[in-house]
Design a protein around this nucleic acid. Structure first.
Lengths: 284, 284
DNA sequence: CGTGATCTTGAAGGGGGTCAACTGGAGTGG
DNA sequence: CCACTCCAGTTGACCCCCTTCAAGATCACG
């Protein structure tokens, strides 16, 4: 299963020479850059005042903010991927979601004064920093920035709703399928290939996000590969049968009425098991 | 189990004569009323312009907005309880959360132009209506209103994070315990009794929210009663042992190191089963 | 009081949690 | 370069908890 792909997959889009910048120390940028990142039209960009904005760079594993830390800023992801999670008192880490380019982080800290969730970078990353006082003080608000914040927060709220989707499905393979569909959609939204991408997070993170044991994630990946829906090599994923994956992801609790997933054929010795589960889903 | 309580519990805080108002048709109010609901100081209330605001009243089962409907407004709950949910293509209803007084609904619709989730009233309820254009247009924004919206949305985002808490726990009784703790905290925040309250939602809604079958919810309630943590009669709940409930709610996957819940004694014939589970959780 | 919805309880069967062992790649230092 | 360690990932085996189906009990409402 390994070795045939891998080198072909996209590498980090950050140049290594960025390492000359001290980790975590601000670099400066401009408001217009943030607006551009968020897809604001050029006209609005130019009409916005030329306000300086600080940028923070992080390396793999760096913490953007800790759980329980005093809320000092919200962040817009400029590049890279972040994991948002909460740690229970007994140390169990619950992953709430993964965030990428143009997404907002830390907004849920506003209402209580501290961050209810932590965020760490899963790869080299950078963010724009918006201090809390700029969000809360009514003075000198910029209309374009307001809209950007509103949009991003609305999206963040919506995405947290999708958290229920992946955790609600009964079958573990369905949870994984939904997760992959979500990822695929987001890749597409970032104008990257929706069929082939590298997972930024480990199996344990995925497991926590789906609400299953990490061994189950392995087994579910294996199942999707068996059904010819995926091709997996370590963290590299290629979706072979998007329709089949979508059909599987639509399976909910109880049985599902999937008329025919053409490509769900697999090895003869495992056909019976597949038929078993397929029948389970069909009798609607 | 039934009959000893019930009549003592709080009834709806809405007077019945409100029925003269046509359901769903606007009644008018003022911006200052919304600001007061959201806990804004009197000074800020008076400094705010006297803008009229429409109110919408709903009866049990009325839909505030449908999933997929065009986004026209966001809402602030003035009274009553709402259920937010999404319906999958096969008809399965996933409950994302329950919202009460001073909470915001519909904000996640802003980023896509339609409501990704539906909301229905679980009891007689009323909301303040804020049309989308007032949220998005930069003109004539009111500072106090902005802060209120920001706070409420941050809270909503934070609460969606708590969704993971209830769905992530392995044991069904732990999910229910966490859910009840959340409810209790919110009751307290509304200055109502945190130990004794009426569930506004049915078992099926709770089940969907917890990610388990509704029969399992029944069994879990029974277990909590058996362990003397709760007293349950239909939808009336009284928390008998808050510490025990909290301890149970802190149990996560794997075993938990609960030193001693004093009140987890129960009937002799069921002691063995309890010991079984208790041992499961203790061997940490 | 009847009717339907909600809730409870029982029984059976399987999916996934848990533990354990193995593999493989990355980093380290001899 | 190899030995060694460490961690991520995979695979297997066991068995309990929850889903599912079914039926009864209770509640809400006209």
């Amino acid at each position: 299963m390994a070795g045939t792909m891998g080198s072909e997959f996209g590498q980090s889009q950050f140049t290594r020479d960025a390492s000359r910048l001290r980790a975590g120390v601000g670099e400066r940028s401009r408001l217009a850059d943030l607006l551009q990142l968020m897809g604001v039209g050029l006209d609005d960009q130019r009409s916005a005042p030329d306000i300086p904005l600080s940028v923070r760079r992080l390396r793999t594993g760096d913490t953007l903010f800790y759980q329980g830390a005093r809320a000092e800023a919200i962040y817009f992801v400029r590049g890279g991927t972040f994991k948002s999670f909460r740690i229970a008192e007994d140390g169990y880490e619950q992953v709430l979601g993964f965030s990428g380019r143009a997404e907002v982080l830390g907004f849920d800290a506003i209402c209580m004064g501290y961050y209810p969730t932590a965020s760490v970078a899963l790869e080299e990353a950078s963010v724009y920093v918006l201090p809390m006082r700029d969000i809360l003080t009514p003075g000198q608000r910029i209309a374009a920035l307001d809209r950007v914040v509103t949009m991003a927060v609305s999206r963040a709220l919506s995405q947290r709703g999708e958290l229920a989707d992946v955790m609600a499905a009964v079958a573990a393979e369905v949870r994984l399928a939904r997760f992959l569909v979500q990822l695929s959609r987001r890749m597409e939204a970032c104008s990257q290939s929706p069929r082939r991408f590298r997972l930024r997070m480990g199996r344990r993170d995925i497991a926590s996000h789906l609400g299953v044991a990490h061994e189950t994630v392995s087994r579910s990946f294996h199942a999707l590969v068996k059904w010819s829906l995926l091709y997996v090599s370590n963290r590299e994923v290629e979706i072979l049968d998007m329709d089949g994956l979508l059909a599987l992801s639509r399976s909910t609790r109880r049985h599902v009425e999937e008329p025919g997933i053409s490509s769900m054929a697999c090895l003869a010795q495992e056909q019976s098991a597949v038929d078993q589960r397929a029948n389970d889903r069909q009798a609607a």
